[in-house]
Amino acid sequence: MDLRQLRTFSCVAELGSLSKASDTLRVAQPALSRQIKLLEHELRAELFTRNGRGMVLTEAGRLLLGRTAGIVRQIDQIRDDIQSSGGPPSGRVVLGLVPTVSCVLSARLARRTVESFPGISLCIVESYSGHLMEWLHRGEMDLAVIYGPSSDLHLTVQSLGRDDIVAVGPRGSGLAQKKQIDIAWLLRQRLVLPSHSHGLRALIEHAAAKKKLKLDVQVEADSFRVLTSLVEEGLGYTLLPPSSVRLEVADGRLETARISRPAPSRELTLASPLDHPGSKAITLITTLLRDEIRACCAEGLWEITLA
């Protein structure tokens, strides 16, 4: 196996298409196809199945990707650091954000990156904590802002602070007039929540168990945008950080109310792979990320208790 073959394999696996990989790597499709075939011949295994939807990893392909994606990323970062040592910083940084953070931070961070470091290519991936942690463990992602707790994650972690959770209801629900509600009252209402695999659901289930209440979950949604739209339609209440629904509240589409103490909150964590040497570009993006979080707090856009 050589690095060119592994980089080609990784790119095709990520994009699911030879044509897209050809555009990204700026290499003709026949050359890419030949590299994949040489790799398959050396490993004596098919790495992809080819169908009408593109290139799909086989079990052997998934194994190879899991073992080599981090290696390819680290070699690319070494190249970027060497090239950056005598000039402006460059390189690619893959940053994962949970949806409730992404809606506040993504555009601001992207704009700052373009303005401050035009040589750095920032790839923002939005997903839930479980998926982001899996990609961090495989070395396919450089950084991620996830919800904790930060212990026992088998990642390098830094606490960013705690994010409060508020009650969220549709227009006319009366939450805006109440301003503060008891969590026992909220948990007795019809709810719209993520599925059981989601960290927020576990937090709410724990709160209900402490109150010895059974939740009335009318609809489940593992998409943040779907979740808020279901609440807008009046299908139930939910619980979210206030920053994530700030625009909907300002537009009068949703209402929120504080939850009386002890109010639920979540630890916000910046995570990266263990033993990851990092790169100059990653260090700079980490600094920009922290700066933007502090700026959002100072401007009243994000009510996080900073660590």
Rank of each mutant, 00 (worst) to 15 (best):
E14I: 01
Y237V: 00
G139E: 03
V145K: 03
H196F: 12
T305N: 13
R44Q: 14
R225I: 06
V217Q: 04
F224K: 01
V104N: 02
L306Q: 14
R73F: 12
G119I: 08
C11Q: 11
L132W: 06
H198I: 00
R261L: 12
S84A: 09
H137E: 09
H137T: 13
D216L: 08
S279P: 02
R50F: 14
A69Q: 14
I259Y: 05
L63Y: 13
V249S: 05
R253G: 04
L239K: 01
T238Q: 05
S116T: 15
V231F: 05
T156A: 14
Q158M: 07
R171G: 04
E40S: 08
R253I: 07
T24S: 15
F117D: 05
H206A: 12
A176G: 07
G52F: 05
P170C: 03
A250K: 13
V27S: 08
D142L: 07
G300E: 05
S243E: 06
D80R: 01
P89C: 01
T286M: 04
R253W: 12
L175K: 02
S279A: 09
T228A: 08
T228C: 06
L38F: 05
L57K: 03
Q180A: 09
E40N: 08
S116E: 14
D222M: 11
V56Q: 12
Y237M: 14
E140S: 12
S279K: 02
L153I: 01
P89Y: 05
S151K: 09
L215P: 02
K178T: 06
A167W: 00
A110V: 12
L186G: 14
G199S: 11
G87K: 00
D142T: 04
V245A: 02
S260M: 09
R79T: 12
E42D: 15
S272F: 09
S229Q: 15
K212C: 08
T269M: 11
E42Y: 14
V249Y: 01
R290M: 10
T58G: 06
A167L: 11
T238H: 02
E59A: 15
V104G: 03
S159V: 13
V27Y: 06
Y237H: 13
T100I: 03
V166W: 03
G119Y: 11
M55Q: 15
C103M: 07
V101H: 06
A21K: 04
I304A: 04
L97D: 02
E220Y: 15
T100L: 04
E126V: 15
R73L: 11
Q74L: 05
I146D: 04
M141Q: 15
S127Y: 07
A45R: 08
S244Q: 03
D163G: 00
S10R: 11
L191Y: 04
P273M: 00
G54E: 03
E126P: 03
E248I: 00
S10I: 13
R50N: 09
A69M: 10
G52M: 01
I285D: 04
S90I: 10
I75F: 14
C103R: 06
A184R: 10
F224N: 00
S243M: 09
I75E: 10
E46H: 13
I293R: 03
T286Q: 14
L193R: 02
N51S: 09
